[in-house]
Design a protein around this nucleic acid. Structure first.
Length: 268
DNA sequence: CTAATCACCTGAAGGC
DNA sequence: TGCCTTCAGGTGATTA
């Protein structure tokens, strides 16, 4: 479900809702969802910081960390009433004082919350965040030029650049007029740099729109995003391309449903 | 290094 | 209505 803009939206809301709160207890309803990597007490530890790296949420506690990955259908909801109207798919509750709590719902059970001493235990192998201030067009171009993967697979692999998933990969490649099956290293330097800027602008405007809700994504308050009405290719197969009028098509590239305009997007 | 396939899970949608 | 197949915003392991 969530890619960088959805996770960023959640992180910003978590800062508003749970910063400074002390953990009273954690209730686990699906054991695999909670990976306790260290034998330390989390009770009494306070939420000191909340950050994001790619699609991972890093919650800094007094001594240790909670790392959250929502995978396909994970959701984090905050409330201060002590219960939810519908608790189907509820996997974990992090309870604070005075009945407030952060709940992790996850229909497909792929998501995880890890309790660790060091975030790099979980995200050490993850590449730079797509919005990392240390990443520039030159570094991005060099990363793309060093890969023989097709560009769709390159963007989806989190080890080169992290945070990009299926929706924003397709949208960025469309806006850049690059065919998703293009070999990364064959894309001209000029186009690689253009892709860097287009990718960032696609991600930033999705953040401004509070993320994209296709089916499951909701923010911490249960609200849907607004970015889905601005998609040009994702989920648009059969409609006409906004640039040339050709029919947007969908087929499997890099093992994923991939949407693009067969006429606008050039293959390298 | 890259590519393909399976695995992890549940539920919605489409074909018959 | 019911059964069967396919697909879904992710990623890690395994096997060519």
């Amino acid at each position: 479900m969530p890619e960088l803009p959805e996770v960023e939206t959640i992180v910003r809301e978590l800062r508003q809702t749970i910063s400074g709160k002390a953990i009273a207890s954690i209730e686990i309803f699906w054991h695999k969802s909670f990976q306790e990597m260290i034998d330390e007490p989390y009770e009494g530890q306070t939420i000191e910081s909340i950050h994001r790296h790619g699609k991972y949420i890093i919650i800094g506690l007094t001594q240790n960390y909670l790392i959250v990955h929502l995978r396909m259908t994970g959701q984090l909801f905050f409330n201060d009433r002590g219960h939810f109207p519908n608790e189907q798919h509820l996997r974990i509750k992090i309870k604070f004082d005075n009945f407030s709590e952060l709940a992790f719902f996850d229909q497909r059970k792929f998501g995880r919350i890890y309790f660790v001493a060091d975030p790099s235990d979980i995200i050490g192998h993850v590449g730079p965040d797509a919005l990392d201030s240390g990443l520039d067009e030159k570094k991005f171009s060099r990363l793309v030029g060093g890969s023989k993967m097709n560009i769709k697979a390159f963007l989806l692999s989190q080890k080169h650049i992290s945070g990009v998933g299926n929706i924003y990969a397709d949208e960025s490649l469309f806006r850049c007029k690059i065919h998703p099956a293009s070999t990364s290293e064959k894309i001209p330097v000029r186009k690689r740099k253009e892709l860097f800027h287009v990718l960032r602008s696609v991600l930033l405007s999705a953040i401004n729109n509070m993320g994209t809700t296709i089916s499951d994504y909701r923010d911490v308050n249960g609200n849907e995003g607004k970015n889905q009405s601005f998609l040009e290719v994702y989920g648009q197969s059969g409609t006409s391309c906004s640039e040339c009028g050709s029919i947007i098509i969908k087929y499997k590239i890099a093992g994923r449903g991939t949407h693009f305009c067969p006429d606008c997007q050039k293959i390298y």
